[in-house]
Design a protein around this nucleic acid. Structure first.
Lengths: 226, 226
DNA sequence: GAAATTTTTCATATTTTGTTCACAGGTTGG
DNA sequence: CCAACCTGTGAACAAAATATGAAAAATTTC
């Protein structure tokens, strides 16, 4: 399910937008100001961001710029009719579309879907995940770590792909088995450990943090933690 | 299929309500007084409760309060026209809606559906909780306090999530054990104290009130107090 | 079908968590 | 102001989860 982050300070607007998006089957998270939005983005990445231009503390421009430093997630700007919105400037900052308030909920939903469709199209072309020092190519089944191509076995590759394509999120061994091995895998869930170990060995680089992090009592997570 | 528990002492009304609800595809269970209802709730949890205000043995108020100690299941109150129903008081007790007798079956069904829809919407809850200076992400199993990521153990995380997702509400140690540890945990309830202590240590911030508040003789509560 | 590779299992060592308990320190109500 | 009753704290101990290494089983390759 796709998740949309709504950044909007006015509670009624936030509610309205959330209700309509949820009705369309999206998962919705909300933040009432820019600081909270940026904080939230440190721990999860939505599929799209609806960003109000006029926000307390940090305005929409700044938030947008900040987001673009790290993420390529699609952003739709919300602007009040009076506010001047320089489309070119907006696009320069990396916004993908904008909606003028007051807007009809149906229009809003339509635009969200359009942007998502566009993003998915662009995204599906490259089955390549790219992280600092790590390149995973699904088409070629190749992995390059710290400039060196490394050889992974099929299971190792599938596991790495699964984790790396859902960064930051924690998965239990059972969930990993289900997703990577297939439904209702009967075997021992400690098998995952072994594969994780081998992956870590192969991805290891002196002086760099490990990409695959153990979350004690919960499972594993892919992501840079510092 | 959704199950509805009807708590009503008058047999004809019980029948009427049941028939109409079943016709709409609900599974219906009935209880003719408050004690029986509470007993039933110990072994199963319906998706909604229709609760008559006027009941033998335990009146509806008491039953409602009792239910709310443990469950967040939606409750619709049934009141006779003459009975004074203080809407505010009812909602304080945690009722989600009320219907005045005599009611049309169609109205009753409509209200049941409306409340269920609302509940489902609310149930697709955020996986990220956000309070001033505190961010809790359930997917990533991460907590950020005052801009710094903090490391929590599994139990600490589960406990914090439970408390933070029911802010302001007081839970006894027993209730916490039941909710966070699992039903009928056999051990010492003072274990909770230890975990609370560790949480407070980790969440502590000079100059800020503690999020986890002790309610003397009752238990603990999550909330900003000032 | 044998060799090589990959995957799984399992026992052990290691690390991290969870629980208990005793005592100190507060709070309440008579 | 005292007795009874809660809660906070720290440390010892128990329990649980993970890392590891090696060997067995399964699969693929030649």
């Amino acid at each position: 399910m796709e998740t949309i982050l709504v950044v909007e300070d006015e509670e009624p607007v936030r509610e309205l937008v959330s209700v309509y998006l949820r009705r369309e089957g999206f998962r919705v998270e909300t933040a009432e100001d820019g600081e909270k939005a940026l904080a939230m983005l440190r721990s999860f990445v939505p599929d799209l961001i609806l960003l109000d231009l006029m926000l307390p503390k940090l305005d929409g421009w700044t938030v947008c710029k900040e987001i673009r430093k790290n993420l390529t997630v699609p952003i739709i700007m919300l602007t009040a009719r009076g506010e001047e919105f320089d489309r070119v400037f907006g696009l320069e900052l990396g916004a993908d579309d904008y909606i003028t308030k007051p807007f009809s909920p149906r229009e809003m939903v339509a635009r969200v879907k359009a942007v998502l469709r566009r993003a998915k199209l662009a995204g599906s072309q490259n089955d390549v995940l790219c992280y600092p020092g790590l390149l995973i190519d699904r088409n070629a089944c190749r992995v390059e770590a710290w400039g060196q191509e490394i050889q992974l076995t099929p299971k190792e590759f599938d596991l790495l792909w699964f984790l790396a394509s859902h960064p930051q999120r924690v998965y239990s061994r059972e969930q990993i088995l289900e997703q990577v091995w297939g439904y209702e895998y009967p075997g021992d869930s400690r098998t995952v450990d072994t594969h994780i170990k081998k992956l870590r060995e192969k991805l290891k680089n002196p002086g760099s943090k490990n990409y695959i992090v153990t979350v004690w009592g919960k499972g594993y997570r892919f992501g840079v933690t510092e």
